[in-house]
C-alpha cells in the first residue's frame, strides 16, 4: 500500500538522526510506505526497527504494513512548554496496534481530541519532514 504523503511549508519539529537501520525506514515513510520488521527465522514482528530480531537475535527483514490499526491507548496533551508543540495544544498521542500485530507510537489528527477512543480504527498517512524522511501520523478510518 502507498498512503497519502502530505507536505508542509516548513518542518519545525524534531527530525530523526538517520542511522544504519533507520535510514530505510524513514525513506520508505517519505514515499508513503510504513515498514516494520519480521524475522525470517522465527517470524517475530517488531517496531521500531533494529539490527536484530529481539526474539531470537537473527537478522530481521522489512515488512510493508497495511497502514491500518486501532488505538491501543492514548492521551490528549494539554500542556507543553516548547514550540512548536505549544502552539498546537491540545493534541493526541497514541499507541496504535497495527493489523500486523506490533504497536507503534504516533499522533492522531483529523479528529476532535475529545472524540478519540481506545479501539478506534485508524489509518496511517505521512508528513514529509525532509527529502528522505516521512513522519507517520494516524487519522480515523
Amino acid at each position: 500500500m502507498t498512503a497519502e504523503v502530505r507536505t508542509v511549508e516548513e518542518w519545525t519539529k524534531p527530525l530523526p538522526q538517520l542511522d544504519g537501520v533507520s535510514t530505510e525506514y524513514w525513506q520508505a515513510a517519505s514515499e508513503g510506505r510504513l515498514l516494520i520488521q519480521q524475522c525470517p527465522k522465527c517470524g517475530h514482528k517488531q517496531w521500531y526497527p533494529r539490527a536484530l530480531c529481539t526474539a531470537c537475535a537473527a537478522d530481521p527483514e522489512w515488512l510493508e504494513c497495511s497502514g491500518r490499526g486501532e488505538i491501543h491507548t492514548f492521551t490528549v496533551v494539554r500542556q507543553y512548554g516548547a514550540k512548536p508543540f505549544r502552539d498546537e495544544l491540545p493534541y493526541v498521542i497514541a499507541m496504535v496496534q497495527l493489523e500486523e500485530g506490533p504497536m507503534i507510537m504516533g499522533a492522531v489528527t483529523d479528529i476532535d481530541p475529545d472524540a478519540v477512543r481506545i479501539g478506534m480504527a485508524v489509518e496511517v498517512y505521512f508528513v514529509k519532514a525532509a527529502d528522505d524522511v516521512g513522519i507517520p501520523y494516524w487519522r480515523p478510518v
Binding site: K13, Q17, F85, Y91
Partner: peptide
C-alpha cells in the same frame, strides 16, 4: 511538560521514533 524536544533538533537513538510527536513525560 516543558518539552524534551526542540524545533529542528536531530534526535538519535530509539527516541527518534517518538520525538516528532511532542509527547510529554506526563
Amino acid at each position: 511538560t516543558g518539552g524534551f524536544q526542540r524545533a529542528g533538533q536531530r534526535v538519535a537513538g530509539p527516541i527518534q521514533y517518538e520525538a516528532a510527536y511532542g509527547n510529554s513525560l506526563v
